[in-house]
C-alpha cells in the first residue's frame, strides 16, 4: 500500500503514515492525503489522485469524485502564489469587485487564470471569514484584511519582486492590510510555502513551530 508513494519525500511519506493512523476508517484520510499529494505533485493531478486511491483502497474515480466537489483541490497546475479575492456580501459592500479588478489588472490575468510565467494565479472566492476586515484577500490561503486598491497592486509587485518562499500573514497584513476583523494578537511564526493550506501535519508550512512560542 505505502509502496505506491515510495517516490514521495521521506517527510511526506511519514506524514501520510501519520495521517492514516489518525482515523479509525482510512477513507477519512482522503482529503488530508490529497493535500499532501498536491504538495508532491504541485497540484491534485490525476497521478496524485491515483496514489491517494491506492493508499486508502478505493478507486481513482472515487477520489476524483470527492476532489471535484471541493474548490481547494486544484486539478490543474496553478501559480506559485494563489491570490483569492473574496467577493461575498460583506466584501462586496466594501469594494471587493474593485479589488478584484485591481488584482486582475496588476497581475495581467483574469480570475481563474495563471500568468504565463507561472508565478501568480487569481481567483475570486466566496466568504473567507474576514468580513469585519472587508475587503479581504488570501495569498496561498494566508489572510490580508482591509486591503485597498493601491495595496492590492503593490501586493502583486511584491510577490513578483521578492518571490517570498514563505508567506506570513502578519508580514503581509503589515505591508498591505488595514482594518482587521479583530486583534490578531501575537505574531504567528508559521506561514504557507505553497498554494495549499499551511498546516504542519499536511507538510505545507515552514517547518514545525512546536515549542516556538
Amino acid at each position: 500500500m505505502m509502496s505506491v508513494i515510495s517516490h514521495w519525500s521521506l517527510e511526506n511519506q511519514e506524514r501520510a503514515r501519520s495521517i492514516l493512523a489518525s482515523y479509525p476508517v482510512k477513507r477519512s484520510a482522503l482529503m488530508p492525503l490529497l493535500y499532501v499529494a498536491s504538495l508532491e505533485h504541485e497540484y491534485a493531478s490525476l497521478e496524485a489522485m491515483c496514489e491517494v486511491a491506492e493508499l486508502i483502497d478505493i478507486t481513482p474515480v472515487q477520489v476524483q469524485s470527492v476532489a471535484t466537489f471541493y474548490t481547494m483541490f486544484k486539478r490543474e497546475k496553478i501559480g506559485d502564489y494563489l491570490i483569492s479575492v473574496c467577493t461575498s456580501i460583506s466584501c462586496h459592500l466594501n469594494g471587493a469587485d474593485e479589488v478584484l479588478a485591481a488584482v486582475e489588472e496588476a497581475s495581467g490575468v483574469a480570475s481563474g487564470e495563471t500568468t504565463d510565467d507561472g508565478s501568480v494565479s487569481v481567483e475570486h472566492v466566496e466568504c473567507i471569514g474576514a468580513c469585519g476586515g472587508a475587503p479581504a484577500v488570501q495569498v496561498n490561503y494566508e489572510l490580508i484584511e482591509g486591503i485597498t486598491l493601491d495595496k492590492a497592486e503593490a501586493l502583486i509587485d511584491w510577490l513578483r519582486d521578492t518571490k517570498p518562499t514563505v508567506l506570513l500573514a502578519d508580514e503581509m497584513q503589515q505591508l498591505f492590510g488595514g482594518q482587521r476583523s479583530f486583534d490578531w494578537g501575537s505574531t504567528e511564526p508559521q506561514g504557507a510555502t505553497r498554494p495549499v493550506p499551511a498546516f504542519g501535519p499536511y507538510g505545507s508550512t515552514n517547518g514545525s513551530a512546536r515549542g516556538g512560542r
Partner: peptide
C-alpha cells in the same frame, strides 16, 4: 480549509 491559522 481557509482557516489555516486556526488549524495551526
Amino acid at each position: 480549509g481557509e482557516y489555516p491559522k486556526s488549524a495551526r
